[in-house]
Design a protein around this nucleic acid. Structure first.
Lengths: 215, 215
DNA sequence: ACAAAGTCGGGAGTTTTTCCTAGTGTATGT
DNA sequence: ACATACACTAGGAAAAACTCCCGACTTTGT
């Protein structure tokens, strides 16, 4: 292996344990070299300029400047930067946001070591890498994502969605809107179906994320 | 150093990266030896019996049987087991529930390596260890205990509350905890009653407000 | 040892949710 | 103008979830 094959890597994660873990996994392969670590988005941006790593492995949820913003700043300044997101969130929304911000790969933390190596090599070659069992999830939600899930709802559906998310009793919704509680129940089903959710937990989360209600 | 000083450790975390990270940190110190790893609560319980580690380092949020449940089971069978929680949740509710379930220490994942070593030595000596910058947080929230509704919940109730708030299907909860789905339903009722809420929407919002889950 | 509290689940009834069907009204386009 | 589409409404039937009540057993504390 020639020196040019060496892939210089920076690790960004607020958890020292995770940084150590990735470092350990990478040490198994001689062609990877960790040249820098950062525990925050701010530091990541600084360190990037100092070390100009080939690839940066970055977490999304960090205190202060989050990973997404850090990605945005780094890519803005260094458009050829290769950033691999290593997140614990198995959430398509997170992935698409990260990729939209300029990341070149997305991996969940419980992935195997081989997958990490695989992802790194993809990025090194200039490709984009996304977790295999994740692509379909993203593909599914991608359609809905661009549309903005709540936008699919009809006026009535949206109204009922809002009331449900606020915790309003179905019967109260019915009498407020002067419709049968049976109709409310039916709407509830169609709303969940349209939003692709199975339970009221996801319903609330979606409402909160959309800023419709606050926690 | 004599052989008897060797501290045999088991790691339990669903993220391979985290396990590798802890392992790496522990390898710096010759007196620690990782004798087993597990990626789930179920496996942890099995492995514990096989290896009988001096100390078990365990994560709380794992799919299937959660960490709290695993702690409970291990402590039930092996009352002298020393379990150190290594969680990413900087949340007093989690900590107190974990300790109530029988854990001997609580550490957040972004702690420094020295703190981990420190904690391990405390546990090895039979002491209890809690993160320094965490004790005051716990102390703070301890005062609000009367106010903090989640504190009213029993271990089991809390566990089920968490799973419900995460949107886990009742039947899945039942099978994860090896109890009847009827029991889960009954718990659900008592949880709502204790927390003074009427529907699952409020349940989720409470969980989010408490930092138990994020939106 | 006794009381108090936690865990577990059956019984029985109520409520909610789902899935299907179906009527009405209102656009939209050809 | 007429067909087509879709939103709004709601009933019926069945399934699923929830509530309330109770009893058994275990753990814990005094």
């Amino acid at each position: 292996m020639s020196a040019s094959d060496l892939i210089r890597i920076m690790l960004v994660d607020d958890h020292a344990v995770v940084r150590a873990g990735v470092r350990r996994l990478l040490e198994q392969e001689a062609r990877f070299l960790v040249v820098a670590e950062a525990e925050s988005g701010e530091r990541a941006y600084q360190q990037f300029g100092e070390h100009l790593p080939d690839i940066t492995i970055i977490d999304l949820s960090m205190p202060g400047m989050g990973g997404i913003e850090a990605i945005g700043r780094i890519v803005a300044r260094y458009p050829t930067a290769k950033l691999l997101v290593l997140s614990m969130h198995e959430n398509a929304a997170f992935a698409s946001q990260a990729l939209k911000a300029g990341a070149k790969g997305y991996l969940v933390k419980n992935s195997l070591a081989e997958e990490l190596v695989n992802a790194l090599e993809c990025l090194a070659k200039g490709q984009t890498y996304i977790n295999a069992n994740f692509t379909k999830k993203i593909a599914q939600q991608f359609l809905n994502d661009e549309i903005n899930p709540l936008q699919q709802l009809s006026t009535r559906e949206f109204e009922i969605f809002r009331l449900l998310a606020e915790g309003t009793d179905s019967n109260l919704i019915a009498s407020s809107l002067n419709i049968s509680s049976k109709t409310v129940a039916n709407y509830q089903t169609s709303i969940k179906q349209k939003l692709g959710i199975n339970n009221s937990v996801e319903l609330v989360r979606l409402a909160i994320r959309s800023g419709l209600i606050d926690s």
